[in-house]
Amino acid sequence: MIEGIQLEFFLILGTLVFFIGIYGFLTRKNLITMLMSAELILNAVNINFVAFNKYLYPENLEGQFFALFIIAIAATEVAVAVSIIISLYRRIKSIDVEKVNEMKY
């Protein structure tokens, strides 16, 4: 707990980072930068979990565990996503998300 800082402050920080990530996810055309935006979103959630753990349930460790698991899942996600991106790049020589529309109607 940090003296003089409310829980709400952390939550607002998390919200801001989360929506910045969403903004990036919606506007970026490059798949790798979209992936980075997804990392931002995950990190915002981490911040929230940690803050809840610290301010509301200091006697427990659950918030940290969830953050840990999220980090692990983010790692796997990045690994798979990067391999997909590389495979895609081989196929269409581009990683522009607007050109990846083979699954349309």
Partner: peptide, 13 residues
Amino acid sequence: KSFQSGQLQQYAY
């Protein structure tokens, strides 16, 4: 059918 555009970001939006 244009809703099903294949544009990932449109879906996300």
